[in-house]
């Protein structure tokens, strides 16, 4: 292993230009993928924030006994899909309406706003079907006069989300495949540049595993370096967007490390593929 590691490191020293070219190519391929990832991340965050607003409001009939409302509230809070539920009195409803619709505050009167149970749902239970199921369950209480949850709005939100997920998956896969092809070609160049060395290694009795190992390590190092460079480029781009265009989220530490690891993995797999193909044909 130490020989393989030394040979991999020496490969950078012996062919610095080719190594720099490989790392740069990998960096730009991953940068394109990183930019796509950034867009996908921000779309997901934006949709997530909108999803947070998904809420069911169950209006209570006039003169519903407080005990009955409290019992129902306890039941609803125990629903598996429910994150939280709260009882809103007519006075609280009036306050909220005045806050939310300040310019029309003078037209509100406590008498026209009923009490309600406001239900927030857990992430994963905010799709139209789950919301509808919870709403129907709440409707079974006979003192519930009406249940509202903006059915049409939720349907549309989920349509957008599904389209975004599908487009994101297709585009992401395309970007990943293009990155793998470009990185594979770059590594193939490095392998071809050392075909003489490989031939000599074989003549002196090197096993394919011995020949392959330094290339795999070299590929993984190049991939990781390319990943770090791509991350820095993506970060710089994000900083420019945040400063001059709009606030955008960036990858957290886990995703950043995952990106570098993906670079190393692509480098490793690309190398394995290129060297394997080369060894089969010489």
């Amino acid at each position: 292993m130490t020989v393989a590691l030394r040979e991999a490191v020496n490969a950078f020293r012996r062919a610095p230009m080719l190594s720099a070219l490989s790392v740069t190519t990998i960096a730009f391929s991953l940068f394109a993928f990183g930019l796509f990832g950034l867009v996908a991340l921000n779309i997901r965050d934006a949709l997530g924030r909108i999803e947070d607003r998904v809420e069911i409001r169950a209006f209570l009939a006039d003169r519903t006994p407080v005990e009955a409302a409290a019992a129902a509230l306890g039941d609803i809070q125990a629903f598996p899909e429910v994150a939280s539920a709260s009882l809103v009195t007519p006075a609280q409803a009036l306050d909220r309406a005045r806050q939310e619709l300040g310019e029309f505050s003078d037209v509100f009167d406590a008498a026209i706003l009923p009490a309600s149970i406001d239900v927030k749902l857990k992430p994963g239970s905010r799709d139209p079907a789950s919301v509808r199921t919870v709403a129907q369950r709440i409707r079974t209480y006979d003192f519930i006069e009406d249940v509202r949850f903006g059915e049409e709005w939720i349907e549309k939100l989920y349509q957008i989300r599904n389209v975004a997920t599908l487009a994101g998956t297709v585009l992401g896969l395309t970007f990943a495949i293009v990155a793998v092809i470009i990185i594979g070609s770059t590594i193939r160049m490095a392998v071809l540049a050392r075909s003489r060395e490989i031939a000599i290694m074989r003549v002196v009795g090197a096993t394919d595993g011995f020949i392959r190992r330094p290339f795999l390590i070299e590929g993984a190092i190049k991939g990781a370096l390319g990943g770090v460079a791509a991350l820095l480029l993506t970060w710089a781009t994000n900083e420019v967007i945040v400063r001059y265009v709009f606030a955008a989220a960036f990858f957290n530490l886990r995703l950043s490390l995952l990106g570098i690891l993906a670079g190393a993995l692509i480098g490793l797999v690309g190398s394995a593929f290129s060297v394997g193909r080369h060894l089969k044909h010489v």
């Binding site: 003549v203 002196v204 096993t207």
Partner: peptide
């Protein structure tokens, strides 16, 4: 195929063009 390397270690091979690693 995997025995070839072991076989070559029992042989010494020399070519007209030397086949040395130049670097």
């Amino acid at each position: 195929a995997r025995d070839v390397a072991r076989l070559r270690r029992k042989l010494g091979i020399v070519f007209q063009d030397f086949r040395l690693l130049e670097d």
